[in-house]
Amino acid sequence: MAKVKGEIIVDIERCKGCQVCISACKENVIGMSKNLNRKGYHFAQSTNEDCTGCINCALVCPDGAITVYRARLN
């Protein structure tokens, strides 16, 4: 079992649905929502609980739309 547990928060209105974060995520956490934001983009979202908080998705996000948290599990 992983010793850390991550989570991402996507700023839905900043996301332009470019999907670069999806290719950056090694854990296949991110998928595209079927919903649209106000600009009409399908936005990225976390689809499972495998996030390790590695921040790779946030680093490559051109719009700085992803905030990452990482908690240590005791």
């Binding site: 991550g6 989570e7 921040i55 946030a58 905030t67 948290y69 908690a71």
Partner: peptide, 18 residues
Amino acid sequence: LPITKEEICKPENLVYSR
């Protein structure tokens, strides 16, 4: 899971933001 999303997304656990 021993921890919820809300428990992870606390300021002390922030590792990256714009």
